[in-house]
Design a protein around this nucleic acid. Sequence first.
RNA 1: GCCCCCAUCGUUCAGUGGCCUAGGACACUGCCCUUUCACGGCAGGAACACGGGUUCGAAUCCCGUUGGGGGUGCCA
Length: 417
Amino acid sequence: MVLRIEDTDADRSKPELIAAIHDSLTWLGIDWDEEYRQSDRFDLYRGAADGFLSQGLAYRCDCSRNDVIARAEATGAAEAGYDGHCRDRQVEPGEGVVVRFRTPDEGSTRWNDLVRGPVEFDNSVLEDFIIVRSNGVPMFHVANAVDDLDMKISHVVRGEDLVNTTPRVLLLMAALGATSQPVYAHLPLIVNEKRQKLSKRRDDVAVGHYRDEGFLPTALRNYLLTLGWGPKDGQEIRPIEDFIKVFELSDINKAPAFFDLKKLEHFNREYVTALPVDQFIQLSAPFAGEVDSELYARLAEPVQSRVKTLTDIPALLDWVVGDPPEPSEKDWKKVMGKETVPAVLDAVIDRLVSCEWTPAALESAVFGVGEELGTKTQLPVRMAVSGSRSGLPLFEPMAELDRAVVLNRLRAARAKL
RNA sequence: GCCCCCAUCGUUCAGUGGCCUAGGACACUGCCCUUUCACGGCAGGAACACGGGUUCGAAUCCCGUUGGGGGUGCCA
């Protein structure tokens, strides 16, 4: 496994961007044996380009972008490629001069793509593309051709959006005298709800985003695997080792797949609940907020089984750690609007003033009132104490609070009725 | 414009000529469980884009239509 930072474009080699790549890969459990940075290897690429130049496989061109477009429009086509204007003009090096590769006019360039099957491009549709910019920096095509050969890259697995540039690299590799080429696999794109390629601006594409949103790397990676591919037996959540045994690049679909956050969340919940508690505590602690670590450990189990993403945790604990949230009027009315509630709260308050302060004692006090009055009592108490009609099992966290705090909340709720 | 590609439930994957009255998962709906919620269990609605072929037989093969996507940079 080679990690190659393809930073032939100057602003791609910013340290923080590279660090993000390292972090994301590592977080996902992907490691590498060798690492290269193309910006360290410019000389190699320039050497290759010079070789092409001296062999007549490439030539200098001083046409501006506008010249190229203007000529293309003149020939009728709304937008076509470069027309080969400078092929035999013997342009000398200088300001605004680039080097272009002379693509063959005939024949075709082909490869056997692992996911797309045989792919063939007529060389006639390939324009003479730029291999060295006017500032002397080689383009990524040359860099890739040189590096793939030099690093003996066996497999190139990438997005379908790169299919069209593959013939260029193949032509370059052939010009470099390559006797074999890497195996290519062009994966279907992942699309958004509008069925468009995920974009950095509009969509959440950064791995780090999902980490910050409380997803487990195992869940993300497992979910991603089910996009464009699936195990024959339909068992889509399982250890990576199992997938490695049956996965084949050649089984991958060609159709683009929608990134379904709902399903990712489902996967994540499965992975979170499967965690041993101590591991859950360790992984989730950074998301838990300002909670005493021993208190958190005591409540971790019920928290774990109620969480889709780790970012759900603070909301589950808010009323234990601090004041309960203000319930919505709708929820309040629904629970506290029943005519039995005042009596329930009065009786519960009465019992809690003196009962033992343990989960079991609290439960029997609250339920005892229920039996006495012939009604359910948990919901009003829960609403009064936690500010919500859903959440953690009531009595364990409740016993963690001071008696005075609980009584205050109950009395406040009673007064608000 | 030109080049490349795609097309099974809302989403995703399975299905590679008969086993399909098309299956699983997510989502959704209902019921059960439960003195909260979630989990779990059960049930339900929901798809082979369209038109031609080929074949005894087509979701599966071929052609076309329609719809969609990607590329077309001195970005990668």
